[in-house]
Design a binder for these strands. Structure first.
Length: 883
RNA sequence: GGGCGAUUAACUCAAUGGUAGAGUGUCAUCUUGACGUGGUGAAAGUUACAGGUUCGAGUCCUGUAUCGCCCACCA
């Protein structure tokens, strides 16, 4: 007896067990094997202390599908996992924890803080990996990396030094984005702009040595404390006479020059602009051009400093309030108007960022951007969907230097040392013994750390041992595809490309598959504050990982946002249950002695050929869809094949053979049931790895795990177009009969005599062959196939098919009005179809220009519909006259 | 101010230029020996709008509307 499955599908019974089974079998571990082609994916490293959310689940499901598929196709598949130290985010969490304990970063000092951060990382660091395992990810845990690992840190330092030595990293005083809450500089990409309704204040500045004022407009009055000039457009007739003169800065009483600069738009505001070089990027440039110098008025917490005079110690917004009040009091405020403007917020903590002049480290982007643009133009880098290529190009064409230093402790410390005596800068991995320049031994390291994305940018190769020339590096790099969300194209994708081109000379991946965002059922972003987030682990707990995975990859397309519905998860769980029970059916009808037998084409019946042929097509299409990254389509095709064709048709058709006396027929049915099931399990495995492996393990004589079985391929010997045609005729006939019977309220249990009328020898042959199908699937009994319908009375349900009519005599059960109504409906449908076909065929353009097979197809349809129409009309007339 | 996307059944979404599909929901029906997490059947569409290209358009082009996203230094 063959071991059977439990009666109900319960994923919790086996998902964890199977994951352990795969791990124990080392199926996820990749090896350098010159006889095989490599296929590599680098998992986008989640934050080390993060938790799995649906975005991760989507991403990793897609990667797992690709990697499992390629593994089965015979590639040496490496999927390398790991985590990111997430400098700013982790540091913020640790600071918060310390705060709750009444401690601060500063109290602990750098060493103490880092100890706390490592403790935190060790405590929460494993979480996300364990959560990923629940999802079934088949990544190579033996190669797991962390961005702060020794090797990866070495790669970071190496890269920094190389770029520095090439002059591509520099230190400079520049306007950067400062987060007063995180108290660090952040890059442009880390600033979120938000349109906000604010005010614009019109302030008049008295002229020096003469009567009158010059009125400026500003959205940030508090920055006037740092004003070093007023600028007007050189062409502006209103102000030409004032250029070169001086004005008095109200409240502060500083003399500032009135200068001319092209940057000023005459149409905006009053046409005169206050210039605050230390607190605005444009003003900074104006200041540079006119040698205005600097006046910094805020500290790292955005609190007014000693340069702010009496406003010193006030928060920036408090200062604004007070300054506006004072201006009003002293009659400098001319007007206040509503004004929309776009305000930058820290991507991490949402605090309004402060543009601030500061000494920071930058990567010079222009020379790096060029090759990254070229490889895209040369087609060496593809985006799925393609439209993201434009976003990539646009960003690179308008790129600005990348601020990479952060005033944080958790991260890669800059490999930069200074001489205390002569300020010489020394860039090296180790601390220099003495100063290169003056020989002093008073050397200290730069306190700053690097932007997290600087190390992430190296991920595709630092993980493989670069800069060492490791075997892994030579074999697995460059990688094949990157799967990530479109929201981190700027942060990550682009930076990986230019960094890899610069350091390795290679594009790090051929394809970039971009996923959309997952939203809640109302289309809102999932967020903690809204409380609408869905925990993937809870979904897995209730419905199983396979149902979740299937939900995430169906019903959406790459790069488009999707809404998440529990109902869909449930539907996919039901699909798993369907497959589970189909397997139970197959297993309970399997005789042990068929297990070793292979398919003998001599014994194949029509439905066997049909299902083999259909399976063959599905194999072909699914593979093709996967190659084009059409994951949702491929999943849908497998779903439809399993449910509609295998379960609803093939299993139902084959039942009588399984219970019948004909041994050969019975055996063949069993062999085909098992054969198709095996192939379907393989096709479905990348999408639903757990249930398929579990079922596979219950099939007789399993020698190897499904995860390493061979991906099915199209086979010409399984191609049976004729059987497909004949079966589809029969299936259509069955549907027609079922439909008519249901509409006439004839219960399926009411078996009825069924008479087919046809003069077509071919159809006769098909129907004759298909007798048992009708008996079992269309509630037919006493099937007759005749040529002449004149002897049949009127007391029938009748169905008009292609080249055939079906009569089901049901004496005294037929409601003539209802039967007429039903046929009228058929008539209407046929009329519509006929009109469409006739219009087409009477269009000369169509007949002459459309491809021959399309025209021929329409002609055949016309003939068919005309014939059917004639029969329907005859029947209608007969019914009406006999009423 | 630029750029991009979306608009298809009640809802959520699919659909290589050739008769618009699915899931969910709805209605009817079935205790048939895998599955009620099921079977069978039905109803449900001017593919946002207006033009154009084409023998033929949900699909390609132009414009409009609505919604959404991204980028951008206009004080």
């Amino acid at each position: 007896m063959i071991e059977n499955l439990p009666k109900t599908y319960n994923p919790k019974d086996f998902e964890d067990r199977l994951y352990k089974y795969w791990i124990d079998g080392e199926y996820f571990v990749a090896h350098v094997d010159e006889n095989k082609k490599p296929f590599t994916i680098m998992m986008p490293p989640p934050n080390v202390t993060g938790n799995l959310h649906l975005g991760h689940a989507l991403n990793n499901t897609i990667q797992d599908i690709l990697i499992r598929w390629k593994r089965m196709e015979g590639y040496e598949a490496l999927w390398l996992p790991g985590t990111d130290h997430a400098s700013i985010s982790t540091e913020a969490k640790v600071v918060e924890k310390l705060k709750a304990e009444g401690k601060s970063k500063e109290e602990l000092g750098r060493e103490g803080f880092l100890e706390e951060a490592w403790a935190w990382t060790r405590k929460y660091g494993g979480n996300i990996n364990n959560q990923l395992k629940k999802l079934g990810v088949s990544c190579d845990w033996s190669r797991e990396r962390f961005t702060l690992d020794k090797g990866l840190s070495n790669a970071v330092e190496e890269t920094f030094i190389r770029l520095y030595n090439k002059g591509l990293i520099y230190k400079g005083d520049r306007i950067i984005n400062w987060c007063p809450n995180c108290r660090t500089a952040i890059s442009d990409a880390e600033v979120d702009h938000e349109e906000t309704l604010g005010s614009i204040w019109y302030i008049r500045y008295p002229l020096k040595g003469e009567e009158g004022f010059i009125t400026i407009a500003t959205t940030r009055p508090e920055t006037m404390l740092g004003d070093l000039a007023i600028a007007v457009n050189p062409e502006d007739e209103r102000y030409k006479h004032l250029i070169g003169k001086k004005a008095i800065l109200p409240l502060v009483n500083r003399e500032i020059p009135i200068i001319a600069d092209e940057y000023v738009e005459m149409e905006f505001g009053t046409g005169a602009v206050k210039i605050t070089p230390s607190h605005d990027p444009n003003d900074f440039e104006v200041g540079e051009r006119h040698g205005l110098g600097q006046c910094i008025i805020m500290n790292e917490r955005a609190i007014i400093n000693e340069n702010g005079g009496k406003y010193e110690g006030l928060d920036r917004y408090e200062a604004r309030k007070r300054i506006v009040e004072d201006l009003k009091k002293e009659n400098y405020l001319v007007d206040v108007k509503d004004h929309d403007n776009s305000i930058g917020h820290c991507e991490r903590c949402k605090t309004v960022v402060e543009p601030l002049i500061s000494k920071q480290w930058f990567v010079k982007m222009e020379p790096l951007a060029k090759p990254a643009l070229d490889v895209y133009k040369e087609g060496k880098l593809n985006f799925i969907p393609e439209r993201f290529g434009k976003i990539y190009t646009h960003w690179l064409e308008n790129i600005k230097d990348w601020c990479i230093s952060r005033q944080l402790w958790w991260g890669h410390r800059l490999p930069v040392y200074y001489c205390e005596d002569c300020d010489e800068i020394m860039v090296s991995k180790e601390k220099p013994e003495k100063c290169n320049k003056c020989g002093s031994t008073k050397i200290y390291q730069d306190p700053d750390t690097l932007d997290t994305w600087f190390s992430s940018a190296l991920w595709p190769f630092s993980t493989l041992g670069w800069p060492e020339e490791t075997e892994d590096m030579k074999y697995f790099f460059p990688t094949d595809v990157l799967v990530t969300g479109y929201d981190i194209i700027f942060f990550w994708v682009i930076r990986m490309v230019f960094t890899s081109l610069e350091q390795t000379g290679k594009v790090p991946f051929k394809d970039v598959f971009l996923t959309g965002l997952i939203r809640d059922s109302q289309g809102r972003k999932m967020s903690k504050s809204l409380g609408n987030g869905i925990d993937p682990l809870e979904v897995i707990e209730e419905y199983g990982a396979d149902a979740l995975r299937f939900t995430l990859v169906t019903g959406n397309s790459p790069g488009n946002d999707m809404r998440f519905y529990m109902e869909r998860v449930e539907a996919n769980r039901n699909f798993a249950n369907k497959l589970w029970n189909a397997t139970r059916f197959v297993l309970m009808n399997l005789d042990e002695d068929i297990i070793d037998k292979s398919i003998n084409s001599n014994y194949l019946e029509e439905e066997d050929k049909w299902i083999l042929s259909r399976m063959n097509t599905v194999i072909d299409e699914v593979t093709e869809n996967l190659e084009k990254y059409e994951i949702g389509l491929s999943a849908q095709k497998i779903y439809d094949f399993i449910w509609d064709e295998y379960c609803d048709w093939y299993i139902e058709i084959v039942k009588p053979r399984l219970y019948g006396e004909n041994i050969k027929s019975k055996e063949t049915a069993q062999i085909i049931l098992l054969h198709v099931l095996e192939n379907v399990l393989k096709l479905l495995h990348p999408f639903m790895p757990f249930i398929t492996e579990e079922i596979w393990q219950h099939l007789p004589e399993r020698k190897e795990a499904l995860i390493i079985s061979t991906w099915p391929v199209y086979k010409e010997e399984n191609n049976y177009p004729e059987a497909e045609k004949r079966m589809s005729y029969i299936m259509n006939a069955i549907k027609g009969i079922r439909n008519a019977r249901q509409e006439m309220n004839i219960a399926p249990s009411k078996k009825a005599k069924t008479i087919f009328v046809t003069q077509d020898e071919n159809i006769k042959d098909i129907l004759n062959y298909g007798r048992r199908y009708f008996i079992n699937l269309a509630s037919a009994e006493e099937i007759e196939i005749i040529e002449d319908k004149t002897t049949i009375g009127e007391d029938n349900i009748s169905v008009v098919l292609d080249r055939c009519e079906v009569y089901i005599p049901l004496k005294n059960l037929i409601d003539f009005d209802k039967e007429i109504e039903r046929l009228e409906k058929d008539k209407d449908k046929l009329e519509e179809e006929l009109k469409r076909v006739r219009d087409k065929l009477s269009n000369e353009g169509f007949v002459t220009k459309a491809p021959e097979h399309v025209v021929e197809g329409e002609r055949e349809k016309q003939k068919k519909y005309e014939d059917m129409m004639e029969k329907v009309l005859e029947r209608l007339e007969a019914l009406k006259s006999s009423k």
